[in-house]
Simulated assay, not measured.
Amino acid sequence: MARTIAKDYDEKRVRILKTAASLFAREGFARASMNQLAKECGISKANVYHYYDGKDALLFDILATYLSELRDRVCDLPLEGKSAAEKLRMIVCETLLAYEGMDNEHKIQTEGIPLLPPDQQEVLRGYQRDMVNLLADVLEELAPGVFAGDKRKLRAATMSVFGMLNWFYMWNSAANDAAREDYADLVAKLTLNGIKGL
C-alpha cells in the first residue's frame, strides 16, 4: 500500500528548505551535513531523507524554488503599455523587493550552481537568463541605437544594473520596503541618465 502524504507535507518541506539554505549559507555547502540539518530542523535524519535523498537534491530545490519564484515575480510584471523608463523602475523595484528575506538563497547561488549536474545548472541559469533578457530588452528600448547590435556592450550594461541591485542586497539586506523603493529610484535614474552617455 502506498504511503499517504501528510497534510503538512508542503509546510515541512518549506521549513527544511529554509533551514538548509541557512545552514549552507553559514557553513558552506561542502561542510554542512544532513545530521546538522536534521538537528536544526528538530526532526530525525530519516525524516529529512523522506523529503530529500541528499544534499544535492536539497541544493537544487532551494535554488530552483528561489530563482523560479524570483523570475516569475519579475517577468510577470504588467509592463505592457508602460514607457521604457517605467518598465525599468518596475523591474528594478520588484527585484529589490523580491530579495527581501532571501539572503541565504541569494548567497548560496554563486557557490551552489556550479556544484550541480549540467542539466540542473541549465534549468537554474534559464531562470536567470529570462530576467537578464527582460532587462536587456528594456535597456535597448530606453536607448535605441546605443547598442547597435553590440551584444557584449548590452550585456555589460545589463549586468551592471544587476550589480547595483546585488550591492544593495549585500550591504542593506535589513532595509525595509521604503528604503528598497528609494534605492530603486536611484538605480533607475543612474541607468536612465548613464545609458545616454554610452
Rank of each mutant, 00 (worst) to 15 (best):
A2N: 10
T4F: 10
I5G: 00
D8M: 03
K12G: 00
L17I: 09
L17Q: 02
K18V: 00
A21W: 03
S22A: 14
L23W: 02
L23T: 01
R31Y: 03
S33N: 02
S44G: 15
V48T: 04
Y49H: 14
H50V: 01
Y51R: 04
G54I: 04
D56M: 12
L59H: 03
F60K: 10
F60T: 12
L63P: 06
T65F: 08
L67S: 06
S68K: 15
R73Q: 08
R73W: 06
R73I: 00
L77V: 02
L79W: 08
S83V: 14
E86I: 09
E86W: 11
E86A: 15
L88A: 07
M90E: 12
V92P: 05
E94W: 05
A98F: 13
G101I: 12
E105N: 13
H106E: 03
T110Y: 15
E111P: 07
I113P: 06
P117W: 14
V123W: 09
L124V: 13
Y127S: 11
Q128M: 11
M131V: 09
L139E: 03
E141A: 15
P144C: 09
V146A: 15
V146D: 02
G149W: 13
D150I: 08
K151M: 04
K153Q: 13
L154Q: 02
L154T: 01
A156G: 05
A156S: 10
M159S: 07
S160I: 00
G163V: 07
M164T: 06
L165H: 09
F168M: 09
M170R: 07
M170L: 06
S173P: 00
A174F: 11
A175I: 03
A175D: 05
D177N: 08
R180S: 03
A184I: 12
L186K: 08
L190P: 03
G197L: 15
L198S: 01
